[in-house]
Simulated scan of single mutants.
Amino acid sequence: MALPTRLTAISGLGFRSRAYAVHVYQKIATLTIGAIFVSPMGQKLRRRVARFSAPAPRPDVRTALVAHLFYLDLLPELLACRAMLPNGATLHLTVPTDRVEEAQRLVQDVSAVVMHPCDNRGRDIAPFVALLNTGAFDGYDAVLKLHTKRSPHLLDGEIRRKLLFMRLAGERNATWRTLAAFAQPDTGIVGWKACYREAPPYWMSNEPRVRAIAARMDAPKDAVRLGFFEGSMFWFRPAALARLRQLQLTVEDFEPEERQLDGTLHHALERAFTIAARSDGFTVRGLDGRVLT
Rank of each mutant, 00 (worst) to 15 (best):
W203S: 14
A180V: 07
T63H: 10
T250G: 08
G157H: 10
A103M: 04
L261K: 11
R18G: 04
R285Y: 03
T90E: 14
P185V: 03
D262V: 06
L154W: 01
G88M: 12
W192L: 06
A240Y: 08
A272F: 06
A239S: 12
T178F: 09
E207Y: 04
M204E: 15
G289A: 00
R225D: 05
H92R: 03
T264I: 00
T250Y: 01
N120R: 08
K193F: 05
T5Y: 01
T175G: 13
A50M: 13
D119I: 02
Q246S: 07
R290P: 00
A199Q: 12
Q43A: 09
K162L: 14
P208I: 08
L179A: 13
K221L: 10
F52R: 15
H116K: 01
L154G: 05
M217T: 03
Y196N: 02
R48P: 00
K44H: 08
T63N: 13
L132S: 06
L164D: 10
P40I: 13
A180Y: 03
I275P: 03
D60E: 12
R48L: 12
I275F: 06
G231N: 09
T5C: 07
T283I: 10
V210G: 10
A242C: 00
A21E: 13
V114F: 07
E171S: 08
V190N: 00
W235H: 08
S11V: 09
Q26C: 04
P86W: 09
T274I: 01
K145Y: 02
V284T: 05
T175P: 05
R209S: 08
M217E: 05
A67L: 01
T32F: 00
R16K: 07
V224R: 02
Q246E: 10
F254Q: 03
D109M: 08
S39P: 11
L132V: 01
R209N: 12
P117Q: 10
N206H: 03
G191R: 04
M233H: 12
E270L: 02
Y140P: 10
G188C: 03
P201F: 10
G188H: 05
H23K: 14
E255A: 06
D138N: 15
T283R: 15
G122T: 00
V95T: 02
L7K: 08
C195N: 13
A276T: 06
F70R: 05
A136L: 10
R237T: 07
G139M: 13
R51S: 15
E258P: 00
V107H: 11
F282L: 10
